[in-house]
Simulated assay, not measured.
Amino acid sequence: MKKLALLFLVFTFINIFSQEYHFDYSIESQTDQIKPNKEKSISTTFYDSKNNIHLHIDKYNNKLRGVIYDRNKDLRHSFKITETKGFVTFEYTHTNDFSKNKHKDPAKDDILEIKKTDSLQYQIIGYKNEKKTKKRFTAWVTLEKSKFNYLEIGIDHGRSNEMQEKVKGFLDPNLNYIVKRMQVNYSTGYSYDSSLKITNVDFSLKLPEKLTIKEYDFFGEFQD
């Protein structure tokens, strides 16, 4: 996946385009799974710092797909990625529309507790009940001052955006911060430690004027 960050120089488009997404940062995440098994993985995400849009790169059966999830519109755009002789081609395939199918979040009534342990370190605890006797997760977040804001809280929870806003409330509004490292322990027994490496990039992806709407199917994304 590291190779991708160096190859996004030439893109082929074959449709008439409308909306364009521009990405100015590459975010490489290294995750060390601690429980239940010790495993290491590296993933790459591209970030549009102006509009807070992510391009996630997924790999399955040696096939690459790029996914942009536009939260404001509840649309998920998929691209087929092909590597040929050192060049990378993005080909738009389809869009998933989640605006009419929003799933109920079973953790929407959780009690969130955020503690500032240092100027750049925070503890986030999600409790399953008001008495705070049962935890859903505990996370330790380490920040770093940066040229731009990237406060994405990578916790598998429906209210991660709320956690982000609450952490932001502790910070100096005149400075920029990024999440440099996170350690998360879930009550299910799964835990991991992740760190980020951020570099500058400069490329754009465009959507066709007419979107192709399909039902979401993870495995179907990798059939072609």
Score class of each variant (00 low, 15 high):
106 P>S: 03
81 I>M: 12
119 S>V: 03
110 D>H: 08
118 D>W: 03
102 K>M: 01
104 K>T: 09
93 T>W: 08
95 T>P: 10
113 E>P: 00
115 K>L: 12
92 Y>F: 14
98 F>A: 04
77 H>T: 08
80 K>C: 11
81 I>Y: 08
108 K>H: 12
90 F>K: 06
89 T>K: 13
78 S>V: 15
103 H>Q: 03
97 D>A: 10
77 H>E: 15
90 F>E: 05
123 Q>D: 04
93 T>D: 13
123 Q>H: 00
123 Q>P: 00
87 F>R: 13
95 T>F: 05
113 E>I: 04
117 T>L: 06
97 D>E: 10
98 F>W: 12
77 H>P: 13
92 Y>M: 10
122 Y>L: 04
89 T>F: 12
110 D>K: 02
76 R>F: 13
111 I>N: 00
101 N>A: 02
123 Q>L: 00
86 G>D: 05
85 K>W: 10
82 T>H: 13
98 F>T: 02
117 T>G: 02
94 H>D: 12
109 D>T: 10
84 T>P: 01
121 Q>K: 14
81 I>C: 09
89 T>Y: 12
90 F>L: 13
76 R>H: 14
107 A>M: 06
80 K>S: 14
81 I>W: 12
94 H>L: 11
115 K>M: 07
81 I>T: 07
106 P>A: 05
97 D>C: 10
105 D>E: 08
98 F>N: 04
112 L>Y: 06
114 I>F: 07
91 E>M: 05
98 F>R: 02
101 N>G: 03
95 T>G: 09
82 T>S: 14
105 D>W: 02
123 Q>Y: 01
101 N>Y: 01
93 T>Q: 12
107 A>R: 08
114 I>K: 07
86 G>H: 00
105 D>Q: 03
82 T>N: 15
105 D>S: 07
82 T>K: 15
113 E>N: 10
102 K>G: 02
